[in-house]
C-alpha cells in the first residue's frame, strides 16, 4: 500500500532513527573489540588494536567454550532437522483431531519464556536422578529448536505441489527414491535455512542453558560469568563480537536462501 503522498519529516526521522537505535549496540560491540584501553568503557575510544583477538584465542577456557558451543549447536541442529522435518511432513496436508494441539505443543517451548522451559527440564532431570551434562544441554536446546525447522519446512511443503510426488510414484519410484529425487531437492533450501536458524539459536542460547548445563560452560555462559564479575574487559569484548558474528552471519544466509521462493517447480499445476 505504498503512498505517493509526501512522508512527513518526523515520521522519516523516527523510522530511520529507530533503525539506527536497533543497530547502535551492534556497532558499539564491533568498535570496542578493537579498542586499545584495558579496563574501562570510556568514550571516545582510545585507539585501534588487534592484540585482544590474539589474547582471546590464546585462552584455553575460551577455546573450550567455543568448542562446546559448536558441538552442542551441531548436534542440536541435526536432531532439530530430523524431528522438525518429520513433524512438518506429517502435519502439512492432513487435518485430524488434535492437530491444533500438537502444533501448539511444538510452538510452546519458544512461546513460553526460556526460564520456564529451563527450570521444567531441570526439575525433571533431578526427579529422574540424572546428572547435568553435555546431553542435558542438547536436550534443552533441541526442544526449542525443532519449531524453527518445522516452521520453515512446513511452509515449503505447503508450496510444493502434491502432483510431483504422485507423478514420481506413478512412474514407479518407491518412497526412498521419491524422497531423495523429488522431496529433498524441493525442501533443501528450507531445510538449510531452518537448520542455520536452529544453529544460531542454539549457539546463542543462555537462559535454558543456565539451568540444564552442569559444570560445562558454553560461550554465552562464559560471557555471562564475565559480566557478573567484570574482569578481562577487552577479551570479553572480543568474545562478544565473535558471538555476535556467529549469530548474524547465519541469519543473513538464511534470509538469502529463503528469499523469493514463491514460485516452486511444479506449483503451477
Amino acid at each position: 500500500m505504498r503512498s505517493d503522498g509526501k512522508c512527513p519529516f518526523w515520521l522519516k526521522f523516527v523510522a530511520f532513527g529507530g533503525i539506527f537505535f536497533l543497530h547502535f549496540p551492534i556497532i558499539v560491540i564491533a568498535a570496542y573489540a578493537f579498542n586499545t584501553e584495558e579496563s574501562a568503557f570510556s568514550f571516545p575510544l582510545q585507539g585501534f588494536t588487534l592484540k585482544w583477538f590474539a589474547a582471546a584465542f590464546a585462552r584455553q577456557d575460551i577455546l573450550d567454550a567455543i568448542t562446546l558451543s559448536l558441538k552442542v549447536a551441531s548436534i542440536t541442529t541435526a536432531a532439530a532437522i530430523v524431528l522438525g522435518t518429520m513433524a512438518a511432513a506429517a502435519l502439512y496436508r492432513r487435518s485430524f483431531f488434535g492437530k491444533e494441539t500438537i502444533t501448539l505443543i511444538f510452538i510452546l517451548p519458544i512461546a513460553l519464556p526460556g526460564i520456564i522451559t529451563g527450570i521444567a527440564l531441570l526439575s525433571a532431570f533431578r526427579m529422574a536422578g540424572w546428572d547435568l551434562n553435555f546431553w542435558t544441554i542438547v536436550a534443552g536446546h533441541t526442544t526449542f529448536c525443532v519449531v524453527v525447522v518445522y516452521n520453515n519446512v512446513i511452509a515449503r511443503f505447503r508450496r510444493t505441489s502434491q502432483n510431483l510426488i504422485e507423478a514420481s510414484m506413478d512412474l514407479g519410484a518407491d518412497g526412498m527414491q521419491t524422497f531423495f529425487h523429488i522431496i529433498l531437492p524441493n525442501i533443501a533450501t528450507a531445510l538449510l535455512a531452518g537448520g542455520v536458524l536452529a544453529f544460531a539459536l542454539s549457539f546463542d542460547e543462555i537462559i535454558v542453558t543456565t539451568f540444564t548445563a552442569g559444570p560445562e560452560r558454553t560461550l554465552p555462559i562464559w560471557l555471562l560469568n564475565q559480566l557478573t564479575r567484570p574482569r578481562d574487559v577487552p577479551i570479553t569484548n572480543v568474545v562478544a563480537l565473535v558471538v555476535m558474528m556467529a549469530t548474524l552471519i547465519p541469519i543473513l544466509c538464511a534470509y538469502y536462501m529463503t528469499r523469493g521462493k514463491e514460485s516452486i517447480e511444479g506449483s503451477g499445476k
Binding site: 551492534i26 558499539v28 546463542d204 560471557l223 562478544a240 558471538v243 549469530t247 548474524l248 541469519i251
Partner: peptide
Amino acid sequence: AVLLPMWASYIVKVYSWTV
C-alpha cells in the same frame, strides 16, 4: 534491518547496553 537485530545474540546485545 529489523530482522538482524532481532536475531543477533541476545546476551551480547544486553552486554553492549551495559557498556
